[in-house]
Write a protein that binds this DNA or RNA. Structure first.
Lengths: 197, 197
DNA sequence: TTCTAGTTTGGACACGTGTCCAGTCACGTG
DNA sequence: CACGTGACTGGACACGTGTCCAAACTAGAA
């Protein structure tokens, strides 16, 4: 147990704590939509949730932790949809990057905030960073399937996953929208898979 | 002219101002090496430079601006070396990603700080973000050369550049070292160029 | 119903960030 | 040398972040 009570359900929160956490996270989503990720403060989130700041900090180590947690939940509430049979890897990957781009563009403030917050060094963010990273890898691995020669598969997987991370960073920096990111990544998928399908 | 006197030389700083800026940036590098990017404060940098905090803020809009500026200078003091004749694109790109990885691993604190700071939204960071982004693209474009078919070249360039950005983000998140990043990217280059050389 | 223990609270705190300002300093010009 | 102007200063400020704590509240068990 870290210095903060984790917000992950498997840590054994009782019903009362679970309700407090849910109120905080819901308030986080609402406050983020209302004022954006820079103007948001834990105090305003706590007020919106109807709890004290001290209670908010019982569950949220930091603003970074809040954003990482919200992003993780956003990811989990948007699992990768199953692809129809008979679709090759390039198509699956293309669908995936478009899907992920839409998921990010549904909540651009959260995506940008999370990109930044996942670079933070506190232990609660560490855990979420690992989970989120693993989820990304899993989605790309599933989409890539076994269509690539086994000797180049790890490098292809890494190329795609890094390109996705890079695109997320670029969109977060404001070079283009998260939605446009999907189109750019579709072209990248085509280029990467050209010699590797 | 922004609300802060830009630290870029072409903005016409006089000799006295130029000296003050140089002292601040040198102090920034030293303080970063001494205490790391999270513990560093503009106040300690100012003290190390022998100027007041208010003076430091005359030239530096924010801590983010300081890191972006230091990173830009680091890039510029490490221009991409010329490659010998007769080297193909894959080899040039491989050398480039290794060179860039070494450049980043020379100053991991700065690299991690800059990755985060370049996500900031203040105008002084905007300018540096554009410059740094353009420098990355230019380096990859030069290394890629004309060896790739013209129809796929933009996507290949983007794939490589995004993979580099993604790797930088991952290293900044602590998934692996900046030096290891070079080896990973070398494999990625090979995979991407496989069908595109 | 009472008791106990865990949860939450309001308020204060230390610290950092960036801003502001009247006064001082430094330098160039006449 | 005196003057004017821009650069710099010390100190105070407002605000946000995260921590701490004694007291109050809540819920479950006996």
């Amino acid at each position: 147990m870290s210095s903060h009570v984790s917000v992950a359900p498997r840590q054994g929160l009782n019903a009362r704590q679970t309700e407090t956490v849910e109120r905080l996270l819901t308030a986080g989503v609402e406050e983020l939509a209302a004022v954006g990720h820079e103007a948001l403060t834990i105090r305003t989130v706590a007020a919106r949730a109807g709890v004290s700041t001290a209670t908010a900090y019982t569950y949220l180590a930091s603003k970074n932790h809040l954003y990482a947690e919200l992003f993780w939940r956003h990811l989990r509430t948007h699992p990768m949809p199953a692809t129809p049979a008979g679709v090759d890897a390039t198509q699956r990957l293309t669908e995936l990057v478009r899907f992920m781009a839409r998921l990010l563009s549904d909540s651009p403030e959260l995506a940008a905030a999370a990109t930044r917050s996942l670079l933070a060094t506190d232990p609660d963010v560490d855990r979420l960073r690992a989970q989120i990273g693993a989820e990304f890898v899993a989605r790309f691995r599933t989409a890539l399937g076994d269509d690539t020669p086994a000797d180049t598969r790890p490098a292809v997987l890494e190329a795609l996953q890094l390109a996705f991370s890079g695109a997320m960073l670029q969109a977060g920096m404001g070079f283009y929208s998260y939605l446009e990111m999907g189109e750019r990544l579709a072209d990248v998928v085509a280029a990467v898979m050209k010699g590797n399908a």
